[in-house]
Design a protein around this nucleic acid. Structure first.
Length: 368
RNA sequence: GGUGGGGUUCCCGAGUGGCCAAAGGGAACAGACUGUAAAUCUGUCGGCGAUGCUUCGGAGGUUCAAAUCCUCCCCCCACCA
């Protein structure tokens, strides 16, 4: 019989910090920060794992780790660990060789994670741990510990960390990291992140990040060049649907069409996707936007200031450079000068669409 | 605790009294080319309505002039204990 899936949140180990694969010690998080992260993680996970009817459960290792007493822990658990073997682990190697070294607190991480496995085995009869490939050493340490303490067998599976075709780790984008939380990465940006996928990654990402049938995805592998763009739309739509819900995905899709122009999606391409094939009414409500009072434009405002104010650039100096280099557009036109005054004459249909570069849009809605 | 070496702009890393907002590389952004792709080439890359202002771990000091010299403090690394 299957035990429920257990999602383990690291409220306890998060207080310590995992040195695996890191070249330097990460800043220690405060207890409050870790607690806040745990809450955030729970919300994220709930989108991907079904916790209803205890089909899956979520546990926080802070529940047992923070209760541990040092001496008993050393005597019961610590004695099973060989330092000689630990320092040979790949996850510590990098740090052992580095200038920064490895602090004792981080050295303990493996012990704690191994203990987690033991604890889960005892509490829930858990015998299989899954994780990213950087967790290999930690998982194996847990398997070992369970065998030594209980004589039981336990197992582990790891999967490779995903990189893009250009070699970068997943999760970085123009504006910085991509977050699952809509508060940190808007639905629009999240969708755009996926649309901008490298050609070479489209098929692989469809397989990894959507639940579309593999035989349909195989069809995508044969596409080339611009034909892939429709597949990218579907990838973005499906990935956004999973992380932000169907409504958000649809809105982001429509926003993209409003800003970048319609893109027809062939009916035969990935037919299992629920992305709308017939383009009907196009809304753009997820495009970053704000309201501004019309008085501002009656007086006129230099356009570089406008770019800075809406957050399209980080400073007004950057806005000035952007405009001077021809990277800024207002309603699709390049201003004559970086400090050209934007007035009511520039407003069309009570809106103003600013654009930085090819793909960063911002819409200003004018309010009387 | 002792000895020695370090902390430079997002990251790596030059710079040991003026020519330094600070080489070079990476990342990033923009332009050209394109397909909201990649590669390539070019430009930009601390802030400010700007021939001036604030930066080089922190606080003082010397000097006409300090990232560079001096003093104290904080942090990191190596070896020793």
């Amino acid at each position: 019989m299957w035990a429920p899936t257990i999602a383990l949140v690291g409220g306890g180990t998060g207080l310590v910090g995992d040195p695996s694969g890191k070249t330097e010690m990460r800043k220690l998080l405060t207890v409050e920060d870790v607690a806040a992260n745990v809450v955030g993680l729970k919300n994220q996970l709930a989108r991907f794992i079904d916790f209803s009817n205890d089909r899956a459960i979520m546990v926080n290792n802070a529940d047992w780790l923070t209760q541990l007493a040092y001496i008993p822990f050393l005597r019961d658990i610590g004695r099973h660990f060989s330092v000689n073997r630990m320092i040979k682990a790949e996850s510590y190697k990098m740090r052992l060789d580095s200038e920064d070294g490895l602090s004792f607190i981080e050295f303990n991480y493996m012990v704690l994670q191994a203990y987690d496995f033991l604890e889960l085995q005892k509490r829930y009869n858990c015998c299989l741990q899954m994780g990213g490939s950087d967790q290999w050493g930690n998982i194996v340490a847990g398997i070992d510990l369970i065998r030594r303490v209980d004589g039981q067998s336990a197992f582990g599976i790891t999967f490779p960390l995903i990189t893009t075709a250009s070699g970068a780790k997943m999760g970085k984008t123009a504006a910085g990291a991509v977050w699952l939380d809509p508060e940190r990465t808007s639905t629009y940006d999240y969708y755009q992140f996926w649309v901008n996928t490298d050609d070479r990654d489209v098929g692989r990402f469809l397989a990894l990040f959507t639940f579309l049938p593999m035989d349909e995805i195989e069809g995508v592998e044969r596409l080339e060049g611009a034909d892939l763009n429709a597949a990218k739309s579907i990838l973005a739509y499906e990935a956004t649907r999973l992380a932000h819900g169907a409504e958000g995905a649809l809105a982001a899709y429509q926003s993209a069409m409003a800003m970048f122009g319609n893109r027809s999606i062939p009916t035969r391409l990935l037919p299992s996707s629920s992305i709308p094939r017939d383009v009907a009414d196009v809304a753009d409500e997820t495009v970053p936007q704000m309201e501004m009072d019309i008085d501002i434009f009656k007086a006129g405002i230099p356009c570089f200031k406008l770019f800075h104010q809406v957050g399209l650039t980080e400073s007004s100096g950057a806005a000035r450079r952007l405009l001077q280099q021809g990277g800024g557009y207002i309603n699709g036109c390049r201003p004559e000068a970086f400090d050209q005054l934007i007035t009511t004459n520039d407003i069309k249909d009570m809106e103003l669409v600013l654009r930085a570069g090819k793909k960063h849009f911002f819409k200003i809605r004018i309010k009387n």
